[in-house]
């Protein structure tokens, strides 16, 4: 379980007049949740997730993982980082080994596992992300963009984290690549892994996350189910965000006198609701 208590974070805390990157953050994420964290560029969402595995420590307040307070004095962060896997934006930029398999082994190796165990974990992880065995000995730099990204995610999965945090994992992928990746996250979540998905795309997260946390200007603006959050359309638009396209359409339909459910974001459900509304007339 991850817990933020009154967390505040400054990048340059010694500079006078510095503005906090995070303020008044109170957030609890239970095991097995699928949480979407939404905010526009510079809202503080990336800063928030970097606290989750101790890369950053709160300037004020507390961050607690499974009952242990994580701060600058916490000794062994490697253990935490194995439990809370963090996938950065464009993770393919961190690949460095000569072969795909070796690169994925990097995390497990840092955990001090034996070579055999590392390899076993790497193969499992590559299997989960759908990278075929024929690429194991290829150089990661020769793969296509989408494959590179999967290998990079496997590099974090190989540490067998209980929580997987991903910062904009779908950036730059085409529609198919985006679906594949999000479906993979859903499978991992179904298997019990906690997923924290950071994104500025409502459409991406709406279908998968069961809970949305909206960050705006260093604060948590909204925290609730997608339906609850999307009911605040005008506030979201003011923050430079938007509701999913389908929700937007349903809301416009409703204001045009159609009696439809304006909290939907799935095409099928929306079609269903529109059909029902028309049948009634």
């Amino acid at each position: 379980m991850l817990e933020f208590v009154d967390v505040e974070y400054y990048y340059d805390s010694d500079m006078p007049g510095a503005t906090p990157a995070l303020r008044d953050i109170n957030l609890k994420i239970e095991d097995g949740e699928f949480v979407g964290i939404i905010g526009h560029t510079g809202s503080g969402k990336s800063t928030l997730v970097q606290h989750m595995n101790g890369l950053l420590n709160p300037t004020k307040g507390k961050y607690i993982y499974d009952g242990t307070v994580i701060d600058a004095k916490s000794g062994n962060l490697k253990e935490l980082r194995a439990k809370v896997g963090l996938v950065f934006q464009y993770p393919e930029h961190q690949l460095f080994e000569a072969t795909v398999l070796e690169d994925v082994c990097f995390g497990p190796k840092n955990m001090g596992l034996t070579d055999d165990e590392c390899k076993k974990r790497a193969v499992e992880a590559l299997d989960k992300v759908g990278v075929d065995a024929k690429y194991y000995d290829a150089s990661p730099f020769e793969l296509s963009g989408g494959q590179k990204r999967r290998v990079a995610i496997a590099g974090v999965l190989a540490m067998s984290p209980r929580v997987l945090v991903l910062d904009e994992p779908t950036a730059g992928l085409d529609p198919e690549g985006r679906h594949d990746l999000l479906n993979m996250l859903k499978t991992l979540n179904d298997e019990g892994m906690t997923i924290v998905l950071v994104s500025h795309s409502m459409d991406d997260v709406a279908k998968y996350a069961r809970r949305l946390v909206v960050i705006d200007n260093a604060y948590i603006a909204f925290d609730g189910t997608p339906t609850e959050v999307f009911s605040h359309k005008s506030e979201l638009v003011n923050m430079g965000l938007n509701v999913p396209q389908i929700t937007g359409i349903m809301q416009s339909l409703k204001s045009n006198g159609f009696d439809v459910d304006d909290t939907l974001f799935d095409v099928d459900a929306a079609a269903e609701s529109i059909m029902k509304c028309l049948d009634r007339k």
Partner: peptide, 16 residues
């Protein structure tokens, strides 16, 4: 900035 980012990404994979 890139150095900082890659360093953090590798630290997230347990590098010291």
């Amino acid at each position: 900035e890139e150095t900082d980012k890659i360093m953090k990404a590798q630290m997230a994979r347990g590098a010291g």
